[in-house]
Nucleic acid binder design. Structure first.
Lengths: 204, 204
DNA sequence: GATATTTGCAACCATTTAGTTCAAAACTCC
DNA sequence: GGAGTTTTGAACTAAATGGTTGCAAATATC
């Protein structure tokens, strides 16, 4: 049984809530946060203005939902990529390259909602969310490193925790450089080299 | 002879052009780009609205001047820090820590104009400027690495160019993490570890 | 001291924007 | 089919915002 929801009483909605958030993601993706107006959202989401306020709330609330949906999808993709059966080196390089690719996708004026646009939204709840997303991402990477230790790909004294954070920082750097127009090709090469760097053994 | 500028004809200006840009920097620093209105600039710069348009132009033009002044100052500071007579390790760690400190300065809602706010300004000229500033910074770091090679602090096959870029990426990552509320103390420790990372010898 | 020249202040205009109101539409329940 | 309930579309309001204009004030040149 999928669900047993009684049909709501009044006039049915003409839009799909999830779909609307999906479309809103595209709007924020292509215009940043401050750049979008309510009219942009109305046009982009296919939801009437009063319905928009009634169902979703104001711009900030919509952005929060967008952010959560985006993070969930992106997190799932990253996790899948990291946990795929491949060498540690390929995992890390793949993670960084995935970042570069999604940040240089054409049509996305802003590379990454989580890395580029959300941090500039001065909002306590957004910040808290980003903080959690960041630590979550780092934890995922750290786990991958520890698996690598178990598999003997890296020495047992490998500083997994620090390196995990460094991978996220390098990813941020690559993404921000995509933002200022560094070509994809350059960034992909840099991602490759970054992966090599963070896998170096600790100094003797 | 400092200069031999004939006194201008009419009523003298009541503000200092450089000083006004300095104050504008504070405004953008504390409110981002989209966040500032012309009124904010009028209030913050101490320049009347019509004078502002006549002398400086619109918001975008003011931001460009601010950015250039900011980059010049920051670049000079970074260069001085990097070229100070100290170990390579201290140079790199100092560079990263300086980034963290300036990004976590209280009162500055936005950590760094060059790293955080400017990249999100969708403007070709801004982008070009950032690109140049970025390559300039990387070049400075690379030079420091090469000096380290000459001094025997790192092996002669040290990949100076790639590592220089990686330092800038790590700096970007640290700055963006400051942006989402990561405490200064954590970031300073991470900066230290990042410096250690980028100084590791190439894999044999 | 008169005149030319430039700045400064206040008010102004047009546009954009966020958020609300209200009646009509579309549906369920009885 | 009618009553009750919810959504929708269009219009509306109030506020903010970018940019301009006109006139008074201040200073150099003649």
């Amino acid at each position: 049984m999928v669900a047993n929801i009684a049909k709501p009483r009044g006039r049915p909605r003409s839009f799909d809530e999830m779909g609307a958030i999906e479309k809103a993601t595209q709007v924020f993706w292509s215009k940043g946060y401050d750049g979008v107006t309510i009219d942009d959202l109305v046009a982009g989401m296919g939801v009437g203005r009063p319905s928009l306020y009634a169902v979703f709330g104001d711009k900030r609330a919509i952005f929060l939902r967008v952010l959560k949906a985006y993070a969930e999808r992106k997190g799932a993709l990253a996790a899948k990529a990291l946990l795929a059966p491949q060498s540690l080196r390929d995992s890390i390089a793949g993670f960084l390259k995935y970042n570069v690719e999604s940040a240089t996708e054409k049509g996305s004026a802003w590379g990454c909602l989580l890395i580029c646009v959300a941090p500039l939204v001065n909002d306590a709840e957004v910040q808290r969310f980003l903080q959690n997303a960041a630590t979550g991402g780092a934890a995922l990477l750290e786990r991958r490193f520890r698996d690598g230790i178990s598999a003997g790909e890296i020495p047992s004294d490998f500083p997994a925790s620090a390196r995990a954070i460094q991978v996220t920082d390098l990813a941020r750097g690559l993404t921000m450089r995509a933002q200022i127009g560094t070509p994809r090709k350059t960034l992909l090469k840099d991602a490759e080299e970054a992966a090599e760097l963070v896998l170096l053994p600790r100094r003797v």
